[in-house]
Design a protein around this nucleic acid. Structure first.
Lengths: 154, 154
DNA sequence: AACCAGTTGTTCGAACCCGAACCAACCCCC
DNA sequence: GGGGGTTGGTTCGGGTTCGAACAACTGGTT
């Protein structure tokens, strides 16, 4: 009974703003990366996750989890990156089924080349539009939300 | 010179959280709508924008702008919705080129049927994880960000 | 040792989405 | 009133994504 069928005014406008910002930012980031480095956003994310890992290597499943894509989607993207010479695949020594994706030297170089432009755009779109306090509050909300979501997926 | 090539710790974690929340929420919402109503999220958004407009009617271009999709993407979705009987297309009286998408009775019914489950999920994922103050701060940040983005697209 | 539930990564079919190209029609200004 | 630039919407081709099905393998249990 206390669960109305529609979102109220505040909920709705925040929700719409969330969808809109996500859509617009994603589009602009995608565009910038493609124009500037020939990488899609998902490919860039894959490179970043690999670079974050020790030795620039990660099992496929771990990578899929970190990059917010499905297993099959990752198989596709890694195949593309391998074709481009940015990523290498090798067998996992402890599990015959396993595949380890690992950054090549070209992969590191591509990431280093792409990062500054990407960082500049993210700052411009995402950071510099807010005051320090606004950004702090916003980031706190995001992080709380994310924690909640992890609990929800479990 | 004062533009570092990488995001700093705070920027990065907020940015990652933003990407992660967007990805997870979109996936869950997509899933819920599909299971519950057989609609994709974009289709649901189209229905919502039409329902918000006077008489449940909108020109294709306005609709594309409101639903954050490309013109061709919208053509596709409206075709799907028309096939499903939820939307009708008619000629625009003041512009021969124009096409007006309009909700059918079935469209209104489908939206009314889908809304409660969707609203409940959005509340659960997006609203109820934050305190009232957190949510207010978060929403303010979102809205400021969105304003900035609109200026950026112009 | 033999089973069996769960995991790993790929393949396959389908859906989706975008940008570019396109045609028709609009607008406006001379 | 008749160009020329702009806009409205669709079509087309290609790339991307997903989930389901699959086969191979693992680890624990008996």
């Amino acid at each position: 009974m206390d669960e109305p069928a529609w979102l109220d005014e505040h909920e709705l406008s925040a929700w719409q703003a969330f969808l809109a910002t996500g859509a617009i930012i994603n589009r602009l980031v995608e565009q910038q990366l493609k124009d500037d480095s020939g990488l899609s956003h998902s490919q860039y994310e894959v490179l970043v996750r690999l670079a974050d890992a020790t030795d620039g290597e990660l099992r496929m499943t771990e990578l899929a989890g970190a990059a917010f894509t499905s297993k099959s989607g990752l198989t596709y993207q890694v195949a593309q990156l391998e074709k481009a010479g940015l990523v290498r695949r090798r067998a996992c020594p402890t599990d015959v089924r396993g595949v380890i994706a690992s950054l090549t030297d070209e992969g590191w170089a591509a990431l280093r080349a792409a990062a500054p432009g990407h960082a500049a755009l993210v700052r411009e779109l995402f950071v510099s539009g807010l005051s320090r306090e606004e950004f702090a509050g916003f980031a706190a909300g995001l992080s709380a939300l994310l924690g909640r979501l992890y609990a929800h997926v479990d």
